[in-house]
């Protein structure tokens, strides 16, 4: 089977993710999916902006009361760095260095888990300290939906990368799984793109009212 063919770094093609027709299709299809995701998140941002600070009474916490910069800064650094580490992983993928790719993916996953931990802490904090809940106000609903959808993407991305790492741990890189690794890394970058807007629009702009 051509897809299971073994390579050496010398024979490994220049763009392994697009070396087969299946890879080409997946590559393009996934980018289109990301185009759709752009609209999905834009819709969530739009809703958040329309419902920001829209609470039933003054006893409910508003954006400026809730957010704290240090935690958000930490989360941003974790996710930005994980974006870089997944670029490193793809660098080694292109050089046909499976072991190093796995190592960098492992670091990516670790950073992603750190981000997720912070987010869980953060939500828990808002919930208990501020009574800021999904069901307490339209603002709460919009906030948790936007940030939660992003968090859900993080969970899915992590599960995807972990599944790929475990599944392919023994057999190394082939033209069959190279597109899969590449797409998972694209997905991870896209999560980072969304986060850049979340920390800007939700947190930074939330702090200034």
């Amino acid at each position: 089977m051509a897809a299971e063919q073994k390579f050496t770094p010398q024979t490994w093609p220049e763009s392994p993710e697009q070396a087969t027709l299946e890879g080409k299709n997946k590559f393009l299809g996934f980018w289109f999916f990301l185009g759709g995701e752009t609209v999905l998140f834009a819709s969530l941002f739009a809703t958040y902006l329309a419902l920001k600070d829209s609470v039933p009474s003054d006893t409910h916490a508003k954006a400026a009361d809730l957010f704290e910069l240090p935690l958000v800064f930490l989360m941003t650094m974790l996710l930005l760095t994980s974006s870089l580490t997944s670029v490193f992983a793809m660098y080694h993928m292109k050089n046909y260095n499976f072991k190093k790719m796995q190592q960098w993916l492992f670091i990516t996953v670790a950073l992603g888990l750190g981000f997720l931990g912070c987010e869980i802490y953060e939500f828990n904090h808002y919930y208990h300290e501020f009574e800021h809940k999904f069901t307490s106000s339209a603002f709460g609903s919009a906030f948790y939906t936007l940030v939660g959808f992003h968090g859900g993407h993080v969970v899915f991305g992590l599960s995807w990368i972990i599944a790929l790492m475990i599944r392919n741990a023994k057999r190394g890189l082939t033209l069959y799984n190279a597109p899969k690794f590449y797409l998972a890394s694209l997905y991870w970058h896209f999560i980072d793109v969304v986060w850049v807007f979340i920390f800007t629009v939700v947190y930074l702009m939330g702090m200034v009212g």
Binding site: A50, V55, P56, S137, A138, S141, A142
Partner: peptide
């Protein structure tokens, strides 16, 4: 979410629209 999970996107009493 509004109908089954108690959120308030469209519920004016909760600040929705």
């Amino acid at each position: 979410f509004d109908r089954m999970f108690g959120s308030g996107f469209f519920d004016v009493a909760m600040g929705g629209n």
